[in-house]
Amino acid sequence: MFVDFNMANKNIDLIKHRKKYFGLSIIIVLIGAILLSTVGLNLGIDFESGTRVDVASSETLTEEEVADHFIQAGGYEPDDITLAGDNNEQASARFIGAMPQEDVTAIQSYFIDEFGEEPSVSTVSPQIGRELAQNAIIATLIAAFGIVIYVAFRFEFLYGVAAVVALLYDAFFVLTMFSIFQLEVNIPFIAAILTVVGYSINDTIVTFDRIRENMKKQDEIKGFDHLAKVVNDSLLQTLTRSINTVLTVLFAAVAIWLLGSSAIMSFAFAIVIGLIAGTYSSLFLAAQLWLVMKHRSLERQKNKPVEAEEY
């Protein structure tokens, strides 16, 4: 059996429906903006002051049991309890607001006595949470800026703009999905977003690299259709690579998502959806955006001498 995603010689037009892709992307961004400003994100205690207690038992737990245990430990009432593990033998309880050290100690000793295993406890003060979130946003923006400069230097300014639009879209898409599913946003999540950014740019650059190569082969660009054909050919030539790369990385990411530790699950999930978004955006957003922008800039160059004569 030969598996082959070779599309280079097939007659597929990826460009024709570009307005639909742009429309779809704009709709997704709008949905995201509405969701993020209304429902918002489920911020973990890394970003909001609070305390999280993870306990592990040898038996299956229910939410009521865990709540009971906290009351017995000293009248503590968790604001949220989630179960994890194959047989729900792990639980994580969240408390809003920072917890005094004595209470943490009381809870720890209670669960050591009850379950025989030391629970994990983290507490964060509101100030630290805000700083972390701020740093993450600054980091993403600086990374984006650095990437534009590098790409503008190695390629051309317009490639850089298109690449950054695609990567911001990907990061935003992951945030939107986390808002829809109300998954917990924690520190590893930032690492996931930044990885997605890295992959997205990686993917886009590979496509752009091929467009640049094919552009060099053209003596002169004769109108929009010609430019569109160059972009379409380049996309088809790199399609196999795009599919294979995203598939192999997805194997790893999905394995970690489904089989890995619960602590890393939302991290892996962010990477999985980010990878899919990244592939979509480099095929249907970045390259198409570059096509439209490049066409306009070529038109402008053509019109310049004419305009000069008029004046």
Binding site: A56, Q90, E118, P119, S120, V121, T123, I128, G260
Partner: peptide, 20 residues
């Protein structure tokens, strides 16, 4: 002043390592 703390139980850590 303690502004952030994180305590991980040894067995939870080991479990996370093995699973991942």
């Amino acid at each position: 002043e303690e502004v952030y703390s994180n305590a991980v139980g040894a067995s939870l850590g080991e479990q996370a390592l093995q699973q991942t």
